[in-house]
Nucleic acid binder design. Structure first.
Length: 941
RNA sequence: GCAGGGGUAGCCAAGCUCGGUCAACGGCGACAGACUCAAGAUCUGUUCCUGCAGAGGUUCGGGGGUUCAAAUCCCUUCCCCUGCACCA
């Protein structure tokens, strides 16, 4: 190999093959202390992109660090194959989705093979192999590949069923009604942004309308749908659309009048819905009156064309004081009806709706954009700062934000209202049918609202190591907020059968909460030593909970493994997991496992986004395919990029140019380290001690950074600061081959977690046997710190800085440089002052007293007192480390004389070093008097 | 709506927990120099403003406050972003 070119593709390949041949990635129980880390396993929904590699890379870096730090490391991985993604992918292949087919072909899939991918389990199989072979192994991750598993294997399903038996036994499975998106043709559908099931409306939210029952004189109900039930006290009239023909429908023994579009919605959400043949034109309702529940007042029915039959019931109650639509409609009808103001809001007067309309110059019902704007304006203000006024009976004086649900619940309790759920925008199924919301009367839930479970989970989360700390603070609030979760569904999804209801499948969030425990088993499953049939509840009870007895030696062996590896030390996942996966991960562990087996830590990382903060989308194929990126930049460059580009807790923008710079740096490091002069063995006491000391400080900082998983600091010190130290050493003329070699060996070890391939290659270059990946991580030895030499070098750097600045400002070419270090008496005064400060006694008086006690200092009292005044002020501003460094008794002139040759070379002119105390001093322009400790006076000719 | 994150020099991005070492890590870009036939790469230096002696001035979204001292603490205001459940 040409030594000046670092052929990363070959190098990466070579070492990956070597690692996996030697199986250094497999978890073994040898060192007596263990570290269990895993990432939130990925769903199987297509090719991944460079963004996903960020979290995976963090995980491998941490795992490698721990492995080198004396831990047995278990770093397994698996696939979350449950749920909709692989089914969605298979469906796309089936319907010949052009993007999907093109993507597969780009990845060298044959037509024949593509056909196979119409089967979801084939999709899982295919992508599992892609992730392992093309992504994880190509990035050098030391994942224990002998434990790979998926959530749709027979063994895993038994594991999940055991989990649900446990939850059931603990009374954490409950049944109650639930409302879910449903296509009358296709059954349950997922409404989400990826739009796997739906062709339109993936962004839709479910709105919860309160349907308030207004009674007509003939006993029929006019059901007005509203999102603001508390405004019932301000109703002045009703709106029906005069151009619409309404229908009469029997609902739970009542007769409702609503738009015909509404009937279907009602039929999916209410138990007894029976359409009748009776139709009522809107126009014939106009002029009648109906009774407002709760306030028992009769109000007229008026025509309002804005009442949309597609929205909720098609009937609208009118609150002209607080709803801009109602206000404008009322103005247009020219009826002499006075708005009733029921909410007091600072910033608004007698009619907030009118004022908002005036402000936005709304004059007609048809100006829907402006009306929506006005509505939002009024609503937000009223919700946050509004208070119900005296017209609201028992609710008077209470803030809108607090009373909203109370009014609704009171209406519901008196059977004067009902709830109707509806999408905020039309949702269309892939089959073309409009998706509705359907009531499932006896849905099963995991009772995450359980007060004991919530409390215990919160208490436990407090004890966990959670990165970043902001999430540690946020988590208890999320656990409080986290409600019951519907856990089963029926439809074309992959997953485990729910044990208490035939043909229903456990949904994918709920089947991936205890899964790291399964990594202990998967090794035995994959080698066929543990057949699924053997995984009975008794088996799981024994292995995980220590209940019952072992049926055979294998059970004991597996239990030993479990007791060794569990609990998880770090579960690492993207920020999308903050509000769903991590909470249920904790809560299920708390519910089922005793405290010693609950996860010890979480690590949340943010995303890699595309330019403009747009999330890189998995479904769209991703910006930069992984295997191409690996070839273009090199894996080590990408790993370094992820670790160094920013804190793990901010989104980073993928930028090809930036990644290229990291590639160049890897090349540069290779060249730098392979071309170092390691043949001349010429020690230099000062310089060598300085390098050793600096190295020691770096080691300390790097170790600390890794211990808190601060990969940015660790990588910055290793890949930027350390090479710079070494370059300074070389530039200063350092030639101690033994020391340089030792430095290099240390560096290679330090770099290994982040750039393992480069490290292995350098390790071999240095003549060592493989693998550096299994070497111990270097630790500092405090005896190697030499403050004296650090201070000496910093003095030198300071002098160079000052000289440069003078040259820059004066723009002269130096013919000769004179350096004058401070006289001994200044050093003495400074030290006296520092001593006083250490005893917290420093003041001008105290200092002068001390100083005058010395006859030699007293002899030049005037100069001394001038300097002392300045020193006292300076010391007050110093930091602790500054003060410590000033304590070091450095022979400044002596030190600088030793580096004379270096300075002369750097400034290309003769250099003289004088101490202000020198009898023979040459000081033509009287500079020496300005010298102070650590700040020699300078004169350039 | 609920919960959370963020605004730092041309750009990306540290620092903010524990106020002083901060004109503010590091990187990129730009400029100059070295090397080279040249380009690229690499190396050196400069890169807020002013300054012919190592200095001074003005900065960390806006405004106000605490302090000898604030990017860092407090108050207030404007703007941006993210998650929210049957999607993983």
């Amino acid at each position: 190999m040409d030594e000046s070119v670092y052929e990363y593709v070959k190098v990466e390949r070579k070492w990956q093959d070597a690692w996996f041949d030697a199986h250094i990635e497999e978890a073994t129980k040898r060192k007596g202390q263990k570290f269990f880390i895993h990432f939130a396993y990925p769903g199987v929904s297509g090719y991944l992109h460079v963004g996903h590699m960020r979290g995976f890379s963090y995980c491998d870096i941490i795992a490698r660090y721990k492995r080198m730090s004396g831990f047995d490391v278990l770093f397994p991985a698996g696939f979350h194959a449950s749920g909709i993604p692989s089914v969605g992918f298979a469906k796309k292949v089936q319907r010949g989705d052009a993007d999907t087919i093109r993507l597969l072909k780009q990845n060298r899939c044959s037509d024949e093979f593509i056909q196979r991918l119409t089967d979801p389990t084939e999709v899982v199989k295919y992508f599992s192999a892609v992730y392992v072979d093309n992504y994880w192994k190509k990035f050098g991750y030391l994942i224990d590949y002998s434990r790979i598993m998926t959530t749709i294997s027979p063994g895993y399903k038994r594991f999940i069923q055991w989990q649900f038996h446990q939850l059931h036994a603990k009374h954490l499975l409950i049944q109650k009604p639930h409302f879910a998106p449903y296509c009358p043709n296709c059954g349950p559908v997922a409404v989400d942004r990826s739009e796997t099931d739906v062709s339109q409306g993936g962004e839709a939210e479910v709105l919860e309308f309160t349907v308030i029952k207004f009674m007509l004189p003939d006993g029929k109900i006019l059901p007005a749908a509203t999102l603001r039930p508390e405004t019932i006290f301000g109703v002045t009239n009703m709106w029906v659309n005069p151009t619409v023909e309404y229908s009469v429908v029997d609902v739970d023994d009542e007769q409702w009048i609503c738009s015909s579009e509404c009937i279907e919605k009602l039929s999916y959400q209410f138990d007894k819905v029976q359409p009748t043949l009776e139709k009522i034109p809107g126009s014939s309702l106009v002029g009648k009156t109906c009774r407002v529940p709760m306030v028992n007042r009769d109000v007229p029915i008026l025509p309002g064309v804005f009442a949309d039959p597609n929205v909720a019931t098609g009937i609208v109650m009118s609150v002209p004081a607080h709803a801009p639509y109602d206000w404008i409609a009322l103005v247009e009808t020219k009826k002499p009806i006075a708005p009733i103001k029921i909410i007091d809001v600072p910033g608004f007067g007698e009619n907030p709706a009118k004022e908002a309309c005036d402000e936005l110059h709304v004059t007609s019902q048809t100006q829907t954009d402006k009306l929506d704007q006005a509505t939002e304006l009024v609503y937000k203000k009223e919700f946050h700062t509004g208070v119900l006024n005296k017209l609201c009976g028992p609710y008077a004086g209470i803030r809108v934000s607090e009373i909203k649900d109370t009014v609704k619940n009171d209406l519901l309790g008196k059977d004067e209202a009902a709830i109707l759920r509806e999408f905020s925008q039309p949702v269309i199924c892939r089959c073309g049918r409009r998706v509705v919301i359907k009531k499932i009367p006896d849905q099963w839930f995991i009772k995450y609202s359980d007060p004991d479970l919530t409390r215990e989970s919160k208490e436990y989360a407090r004890t966990m190591a959670i990165y970043p700390v902001e999430y540690w603070e946020e988590l208890p609030k999320i656990l409080d907020w986290f409600g019951d979760r519907a856990v089963i569904r029926k439809g074309s999804w992959l997953g485990t059968e729910f044990p208490y209801k035939k043909d229903w499948i456990i949904e994918p969030i709920s089947d991936s909460t205890l899964y790291p425990a399964y990594y202990v088993l998967s090794k035995y499953v994959n080698t066929k030593r543990l057949p699924p049939e053997e995984m009975t509840d008794a088996f799981f009870d024994y292995v995980f909970l220590g209940r019952g007895t072992a049926k055979n030696a294998l059970w004991r062996e597996i239990k030993d493994d479990f007791d060794y590896w569990y609990p998880v030390n770090i579960n690492l996942g993207g920020k999308e997991h903050k509000t769903v996966h991590f909470p249920v991960y904790i809560m299920n562990h708390v519910a089922i496992f005793p405290e010693p087996k609950r996860p010890r830590g979480l690590f949340v990382h943010w995303w890699v986004t595309q330019k403009g903060k747009e999330k890189i989308s998995k479904s769209k194929g991703g910006a930069e395919p992984i295997h191409e990126a690996a070839l273009t930049y090199g894996v080590d460059a990408m790993r370094l990029y992820y670790a160094h580009i920013g804190s793990p807790f901010v989104d980073i923008e993928w930028d090809a140019e930036t990644v290229t710079k990291y590639k160049i740096r890897i090349q540069m490091l290779w060249r730098l380290f392979t071309h170092l002069n390691r043949t001349t063995d010429k020690p230099d006491e000062n310089l060598d001690a300085w390098l050793q000391s600096t190295l020691t400080r770096r080691l300390h900082k790097i170790h600390e950074a890794y211990e808190t998983f601060d990969l940015r600091v660790a990588s910055n010190e290793t890949f930027f600061e350390m090479p710079r130290d070494l370059q300074w050493y070389v530039k200063r003329g350092g030639k101690n081959a033994a020391l340089v070699t030792k430095y290099l060996e240390t560096w290679v070890c330090l770099a290994t977690p982040i750039t393992p391939h480069l490290s292995e290659e350098l390790w071999a270059f240095l003549g060592h046997e493989p693998f550096v990946s299994t070497q111990p991580f270097p630790r500092e030895a405090t005896k190697d710190v030499s403050e004296y030499h650090e201070v000496g070098e910093s003095l030198l750097i300071h002098v160079i800085d000052d000289l440069s600045e003078i040259l820059k400002v004066t723009n002269i070419t130096p013919k000769k440089i004179s350096i004058y270090t401070a006289p001994a008496w200044k050093q003495q005064v400074l030290r006296l002052a520092l001593d006083l400060e250490d005893r917290q006694l420093l003041s001008m008086n105290a200092l002068m007293k001390e100083v005058m006690a010395d006859p030699q200092l007293k002899a030049q009292a005037k100069l001394v007192s001038q300097y002392a005044g300045k020193v006292a002020g300076d010391i007050k501003k110093m930091t602790e480390t500054d003060r410590q460094r000033y304590h070091v008794k450095l022979d400044e002139a002596g030190y600088l004389r030793q580096v004379k040759a270096f300075l002369e070379a750097a400034f290309s002119c003769p250099v003289e070093v004088w101490s202000a105390d020198d009898a023979a001093i040459v000081d033509p322009v009287q500079k020496a008097k300005n010298a102070v400790p650590r700040r020699p006076a300078l004169y350039i000719e």
